[in-house]
Design a protein around this nucleic acid. Structure first.
Lengths: 149, 149
DNA sequence: AAATACCCTACTGTTTTTGTCAAGTATTAT
DNA sequence: ATAATACTTGACAAAAACAGTAGGGTATTT
């Protein structure tokens, strides 16, 4: 259950490669493609979104490539996935645009909401820098002491 | 991102209805269908899985229906979702059957693993009883202090 | 002006999801 | 017995989401 799309996975891995070049060396799509074994065309789609979101910037022409727009410790995994897959919304009920017709009567509504918040909180605490260092400080993600309906 | 399938959602809601009848009254599919607005045919599939998993038992014939196999405080949301959607496996990498060809080189492997474990831990702490009471004690789900690769 | 490298949109095959349908089996009440 | 109730099972199909390709375009450097 709860599979992450390849877009999200590849996106994080691509960001990891770009982070490795920061702040000096732009990394080309081709390099990312080879190192992470993802097609250039597919990466183009992914990096485009991340660029538009302001996470990375691109430099055209020879010697160009992609580079982080801010330092690795300021880019969370959550911010990457949010751009590529949208916000965590375990049910259509919880889609940002709303549309839950049963909200009040839906007994599980708050449950999914709490779980979503927990996931989001976790992903926010982990940055690209953490990923590169290979250690995840999971600072006690606490959702809520008690949620009473 | 991370959408839960309707099967999982309906499953939890169906279990909620069945829990309401426990331990006296078997609840029929028809009743669940009406109260939760899910088709009888679809519920049949879902309840069948839950029955085979031993979470509920069925009583045939008039006056029959479904009933919990153990008390509501002994059935976690995790156990329901696990039957209907399989274990949390955010990437194919983490599928129980294995098959990750890159494990060592995959920088994100541990990240997804940690997140999955966090989700699973959260869902395990919440039981049908909690759901019925409407309060989720989220007892500080702590993943790991520090994971060093 | 040639080479490099990003930019953008459309499209398509596959897989998963979300159900429906039809025919069956078991049990109870009369 | 038999009719009514209710669960059981497997096949199937429409629709949505996913994963990725293709092909042309634009900007920059040497």
């Amino acid at each position: 259950m709860l599979r992450l799309s390849t877009k999200g996975q590849y996106g994080v891995r691509a960001m990891y490669e770009i982070a490795r070049g920061y702040p000096e060396t732009p990394v080309t799509i081709k390099e990312i493609s080879e190192r992470q074994d993802v097609s250039v065309a597919y990466l183009e789609q992914i990096l485009n979104k991340l660029r538009k979101a302001g996470l990375i910037k691109s430099i055209k022409g020879p010697g160009g490539g992609y580079i982080l727009n801010r330092s690795a410790d300021k880019i969370s995994i959550a911010s990457i996935l949010n751009e590529l897959e949208g916000p965590v919304a375990l049910t259509s009920c919880l889609d940002p645009e709303g549309g839950c017709v049963r909200v009040d009567s839906c007994v599980t509504h708050l449950l999914w909401k709490a779980l979503g918040e927990q996931v989001e909180a976790f992903l926010k605490t982990i940055t690209l820098k953490n990923l590169m260092a290979g250690d995840f400080y999971s600072q006690e993600v606490k959702v809520k002491d008690k949620v009473k309906v």
